[in-house]
Nucleic acid binder design. Structure first.
Lengths: 285, 285
DNA sequence: AATAAAATGAAAAATATTTTCAAAAATCTA
DNA sequence: TAGATTTTTGAAAATATTTTTCATTTTATT
């Protein structure tokens, strides 16, 4: 699910030769500096011959060592973001405003990358099945995730009127108590564990209502209830609670889900696109 | 506001020599392929000598041509995203689901990049001033942007109770009619032009209430009313209306604004951070 | 254990990059 | 504007880097 050279190496690691593994180990340990080394230095540092490095590059499908360095540089742009010094957790009072912006930008991109990484086509397909066949889809979320539930509702409402959003958790519970097994719940919960949520999920399970959960924690309590678990990236620390970086990943996930839904229901898509464009046009000045 | 090599060249373009400009022109016209050229080919293609290329690289603060190619490769990661073939607009029925995910991912990153590019430290500071000194801050938005207004309210509510969110546009108008010049409106409108919004802005102007506008269009009607205009990136076509990529940029902008606010009001920040962490902890199982 | 196949590194060959230096162009000065 | 000075330039030499070749070692197979 990515053209990142480091991931390519990881995937092929098992099929590498002895020298290849030696080289790969060095590269991983020095992922951000290797791109600047001439082949001779890399040979010396990693303990393999220059010829082996050239072969290594060819085996990866690259045209040579220069190509490899370029690929590393590109992946570096991505992996640098994981560098603690670029994390918003490390934002200090000394940071200039523009520093802060850079760090937030980096963490948002990181969140997108992680979410892309965690995207599982089969899970999305399962979720799209459920959403497509549902009588009604209840978009739920609590606290910060309530906004995401609303966003999902808003997005899907451009193509279908089957989606419902309810803010208050008591009203959520009430509505689920009256729902049927033809309905589906699309639940957003970064932590995957809040009291109110568990109440609702218990009712839903009783009534055999399918649950799609968007969370960061595949082993959370909510995940145990869910029929499909969709993971979003970004390891938010408790102190950053509410940070938007996590939400950026969720937003991206919603869009993937939506496009999957449109792919499955092309008739809805086309009709709805023009209808909602018109509706909006009327609102515009 | 970025370490992108192509932007560096743009910034220094006026101070380049004749051959430097010639070279820069070629590089811009061939931004994504130059990284793969040996210096001799680039010399021939661009019509300058190899020596001039080496000097050009040194003048950019790089150690040489190899370094330059690496820098280009890194910027390529970013600029590739602008490639039409990676845009979600070009998503077709033939695209596999995983292709679609890649394209959406690319467009989201593009949106973040553009927003970072458009971020103006002075404007953020002005906005932070207004938000910090306000009696109350009304977070407004309509249609898809309503969710963003809510997100802003949710985010700032982790640090202050001065922020208010009202969904219904009639209620928005009513509340503004009762507001004072000590209050501030934080308005989200991607297009910057909807009827309901204009009504509210007219009332606000009458009462001398400050307006901060988050929009994509600096010349929109709403921008004319606003005291501070904050721009978010991503050129959403009418047909993509509602796409989340634009919202990802807005979300990022909210976070920048919030960190700016916290920097200005450190006492709120620290106190609120632990208070809301506790409040959330109680909700967790 | 003998053989075949694959992998490896030293060194030669091929490429690529940087530096030097003299010539050309641009800028300045009177 | 003519002449002096500085800056810019490219050809070619010097240096550095990468790739290929090939003899040797290692691993796998029978």
């Amino acid at each position: 699910m990515s053209g990142n050279i480091l991931e390519n190496i990881t995937e092929q690691y098992h099929s590498l030769t002895r020298s290849g593994k030696k080289l790969a180990d060095y590269i991983f340990a020095n992922a951000s500096t290797t791109q600047y080394l001439p082949i001779s230095t890399l040979a010396e540092n990693s303990g393999v011959s220059e010829a082996s490095i050239t072969r290594f590059c060819h085996n990866l499908g690259l045209s040579g060592y220069n190509d490899f360095k370029l690929a590393l540089a590109k992946s570096d742009y991505v992996t640098d973001l994981g560098d603690p010094s670029n994390s918003p957790e490390t934002i200090t009072a000394e940071d200039t405003l523009s520093n802060v912006f850079q760090k937030l930008h980096a963490s948002n991109i990181l969140s997108l990358n992680e979410t892309l990484e965690l995207l599982d086509e089969q899970n999305i397909s399962k979720a799209v099945d459920l959403l497509s066949n549902a009588d009604r889809v209840f978009c739920f979320g609590q606290g910060g995730s309530m906004v995401m539930a609303m966003e999902a509702w808003a997005r899907f409402s451009t193509a279908t009127s089957h989606f419902i959003h309810i803010e208050d958790s008591h009203m959520q519970a009430m509505n689920i108590a009256l729902a049927t097994s033809q309905d589906v719940i699309l639940f957003f919960s970064y932590s995957g564990s809040t009291k109110d949520m568990e109440d609702i999920m218990n009712i839903a399970k009783d009534k055999n209502i399918s649950i799609i959960l968007v969370t960061h924690f595949p082993k959370s309590r909510a995940a145990g209830f869910a029929d499909v678990v969709l993971l979003c990236g970004y390891n938010e620390s408790p102190l950053q609670s509410g940070s938007v970086a996590a939400k950026v990943g969720q937003l991206f996930l919603i869009e993937c889900l939506f496009y999957g839904f449109c792919k499955r229901n092309p008739e809805l898509y086309a009709a709805a696109r023009s209808a909602s464009a018109e509706a909006i046009a009327q609102k515009l000045l």
